[in-house]
Amino acid sequence: MAVSTKNGQKVWQRRDRNSQLKIWAMWLIGTAIFMWSWTQISAATTWSFFWDAPRIAADIGGRAVPPRWAYIEKLWEPLWDTLNIATLGTILALIMAVPVAFLAARNTTPSALFVRPIALFIIVSTRSINSLIWALLLVKILGPGIFAGLVAIAIRSIGFCAKLLYEAIEEIDEKQVEAVRATGARPWQVMVYGIVPQIMPAFAGIAVFRWDINLRESTVLGLVGAGGIGLQLQGSLNTLAWPQVSLILIVILVAVLVSEWVSAKVRGAII
């Protein structure tokens, strides 16, 4: 905000000239970057295909309706696998995330100089890489199947859960911990009595939140051979069986909505 004098009159402006110029410059640079990005995408696009898109979309839509309802018979088992990948993957991730979180939190780490950076690196590296990429890698190592998917989901979730958990640990009320320590309790007892009760609600919230995300992610792991309903999707896409594709998409949509409902319910019950 600035007031300047112009022709002997005071003029009010929201910003002075320099900050106004800076804002314009930022807009200009931003627009330039966006335009450059757009030309890149545009150059890589076959525009005749692009303009043909509505016709193709209508064509696929026409083939996909009505969904082949009878195919549901073959979807129960992959659906069960998907659920297991998500649930067991989340449990496995939580088991590994808890120690990582305690090592990463400033107030519980045994060494801020050596251990904490390692824990933070585990968090960043597992979090930055999408579960589909982990699945791609693990299918090569462990062979295709549910097991690879489960491990992929677990690894991807470590960083996510550990990050949220260590933030919760850093936010605890130190006075309660101090009080337990003052009784002469051992470090492990201080943890169980002073810290764990304080982070329990956060832990439960994180677990349910991540389970919900994992169920969504495990629906597509099959695309790279890591089990679950994604396998059927891949198969149907490869054979251009659009009525099956539309049924699978409906099933995935319903599963996601149910998981969202369940996680909202559980979160409501805990907090």
């Binding site: 006075k175 101090e178 003052a182 009784t183 304080q198």
Partner: peptide
């Protein structure tokens, strides 16, 4: 830790573990 057992401490804002 052994000696701390012989010193009970009472705090300003109670410092109870609230969720226990």
């Amino acid at each position: 830790r052994k000696e701390r057992r012989r010193m009970g401490m009472i705090f300003q804002e109670y410092a109870l573990v609230e969720r226990l």
